[in-house]
Design a protein around this nucleic acid. Structure first.
Lengths: 195, 195
DNA sequence: CTTTTCATATGATGATTGTCATGTCAAATT
DNA sequence: AATTTGACATGACAATCATCATATGAAAAG
């Protein structure tokens, strides 16, 4: 009862899910084709009826990852001041839960280092996804320039903060990094409204 | 005229130099043994008379990279206020020159994502090097707690900022990220002294 | 001078990788 | 009913990888 196109779409979806997870957990060079296809319940040979090469998969997986969980980190703007919004987003993003759940984490943070070493197509996709997240933070395309800049500093602080929290060996230091960065976002937003 | 120990030391030094470069440029999984040894003017077989395995090399290379260029990024504390110091360090660190010269860049920034996926030994080394850099920023071991926290937020912002600047495809956006993060450091330091 | 030591070279090992040629089988098409 | 299509499986390919066994040659030790 399943048409051929439906079956292919379902397979593609499973491939994207699996590769989006492995990409964040193991990085660009770690997310190999065979394990991804196995996660998707297929064999490695079937890969090339969905993508031309590994590079295409990485680009698609990056987009898939961000399309899936950007709403979870950014959400819709509420009735709140700009500093309050940034503070709220930071308190959600810079948490131990997000740090530990790499498989379902923000791909922009998990793949910063990888993106700079990636192909031209991958870096282009990363840039596009970053821009989307930035305008989602601002809520509106026509936000004040100061807020757009704030969003950039906010992302840099969040990505660096959660990256450090993941890299660090000492659990106490890791928690401290998160706490300090959360507070730094608040200070940054308030220092902004003071001018 | 070269003694055997001198020759081995010289070889080790070349291996460390080469691997420290390749580690930053190509990442943990990209820095393979054979190319590193070739850069050092040796063959791959000679590797195992210097290190037990690839993991040991990664740890040593990380330490070597930071031992070599930490002074360049942090330097010695001058006669300046704390906000002025942070601002000055940011204006040196968050530059296009540093962004483009990955081979001689700050390893803490180039290897954030890699560190979280690295071995226990590598993460431990990363943690130690980060701690050293933090106390070098503060200048003194017994700096005020507020300054130690500032240094953490500073590093997160710098690592995230230069990571984003490297990842991003659009040159204009990349420069803008650097500029915004430089200014954010200044705002952060000033917001601190206001309390 | 003889012997030992060991840094290095050569080459092989097995594992893993991306890629593709070929075969198969069921759905779509005629 | 006959034919075509294409998603998928199987298997092979060359390349790359970490690791190690063995050989060599020169320096150190005797």
């Amino acid at each position: 009862m399943v048409s051929r196109v439906e079956l292919k779409e379902a397979s593609l979806h499973r491939i994207l899910d699996a590769s989006a997870v492995r990409l964040r957990v193991e990085g660009l060079s770690g997310a190999a084709i065979a394990p991804v296809m196995q996660d998707a319940g297929l064999t490695h040979g079937a890969f090339y009826s969905h993508f031309a090469n590994k590079d295409e998969l990485a680009v698609a997986a990056l987009r898939h990852a961000l399309l899936e969980n950007r709403p979870h980190w950014v959400g819709k703007p509420r009735n709140e001041s700009w500093p309050a919004r940034l503070g709220r987003l930071a308190r959600r993003y810079l948490t131990a839960a997000h740090r530990d759940d790499v498989a379902d984490s923000c791909a922009l943070a998990a793949l910063v280092s990888d993106a700079s070493r990636g192909s031209a197509a991958f870096r282009q996709a990363y840039t596009r996804e970053l821009a989307k997240s930035l305008s989602a933070i601002c809520g509106d395309e026509s936000a004040p320039l100061q807020q757009q800049d704030d969003a950039i500093a906010f992302m840099a602080l969040c990505i660096g903060g959660i990256g450090l929290a993941r890299a660090v060996d000492d659990p106490a230091l890791s928690e401290h990094v998160l706490a300090v960065c959360r507070e730094a976002v608040a200070r940054l937003a308030n220092a902004d409204s003071a001018t």
